[in-house]
């Protein structure tokens, strides 16, 4: 599967301009969110994936690996952008409960989650309007392996997040530098970003959560920044904390981008202080 997606990404990227004309400026497609749409890695943005402008279409294919002390997450995702207006995305996420799996005697367990998402740009342009670019998005997730989430108290094996995101690049902001500011508000019942089912014993319903990104463009092609994602805490058996990271995203051209981050996921259940790295490769077409 992993190899397949990478091959597709490679093929799409090589077919180049025949596929998409990439009429937007470098880096304005952001990097792949874990769910496949445009964002930073853990916080969505109002940007739409790829480089399609108002009368073009395009998209991205991404592979991401997140490795923290006791867990690992592999994500393969794709996004399609129609006219820089609508973004459709899908991802397959494999959550590896290394240490915890061994502790409960199931071995290094993999939980698979599939997602589909849609995002609509409502107003504004990240570069050209005084107001930020504003988009509304939804992501539906479904578990393929619900036994463990159910065991720790998750109520549903599928759920939908809705979010509103506003993103703006200040071309010559503070200190005459180029800054990216992004804020999102999410309504969700997902446990651990949807990796451990939906709803729990502490809180069975939905929560409203705040997320944000601050980035500095070291050059047109290099974005350095930080993300923060507020999380609910629905499960007694598997506590969760807010997530944060510090990332660097490199856009050597409009076909490829590479992002790396130092992530801090806090406590995940009994396993405390989950820190590690995130690496993501995206091909755009």
């Amino acid at each position: 599967m992993a190899r397949l997606v990478l091959l597709i990404a490679w093929g799409l990227a090589l077919t180049g301009p025949a596929f998409g004309e990439r009429g937007r400026l470098l880096a304005t497609g952001g990097i792949a969110h874990l769910d496949g749409g445009a964002g930073g890695g853990i916080v969505p943005m109002a940007l739409l994936a790829g480089y399609a402008s108002d009368d073009q279409y395009g998209g991205t294919v991404s592979a991401t690996r997140t490795d923290v002390d006791d867990y690992r997450l592999n994500t393969f995702s794709a996004a399609f952008n129609w006219h820089n207006r609508i973004e459709l995305s899908a991802s397959r996420q494999v959550f590896n409960l290394g240490t915890l799996g061994r502790q409960v005697g199931t071995g290094a367990l993999d939980l698979q989650v599939n997602t589909v998402g849609v995002k609509v740009r409502l107003a504004g342009d990240v570069l050209y309007t005084e107001m930020p670019q504003v988009s509304l998005g939804a992501v539906y997730r479904r578990h393929h392996d619900f036994d463990i989430p159910e065991l720790v108290g998750a109520r549903e094996d599928s759920g939908t997040d809705a979010y509103l995101a506003a993103t703006k690049v200040f071309l010559a902001g503070w200190l005459e530098q180029r800054w990216l500011v992004n804020a999102a508000v999410r309504n969700s019942s997902a446990n651990h970003a949807g990796l451990v089912g939906f709803g729990g014993d502490r809180e069975s319903g939905r929560s409203t959560l705040l997320e944000g990104t601050l980035g500095w463009f070291a050059s047109d092609a290099l974005l350095i920044g930080t993300e923060y994602r507020q999380k609910p805490d629905n499960l007694t058996a598997l506590d969760e904390d807010n997530w944060r990271d510090v990332f660097i995203a490199w856009f050597p051209d409009k076909q490829w981008s590479l992002a790396a981050a130092a992530v801090d996921l806090g406590d995940i259940g009994p396993l405390e202080d989950q820190r590690g790295v995130y690496l993501s490769l995206t091909g755009s077409f």
Binding site: D125, L127, Y128, T129, E130, F170, L171, A172, L175, E176, Q177, R178, S219
Partner: peptide
Amino acid sequence: QAVQNQLLARLAPMQG
């Protein structure tokens, strides 16, 4: 870069 940023920032609002 800082000079480029400023020129771009002054031209960008003309896009509309």
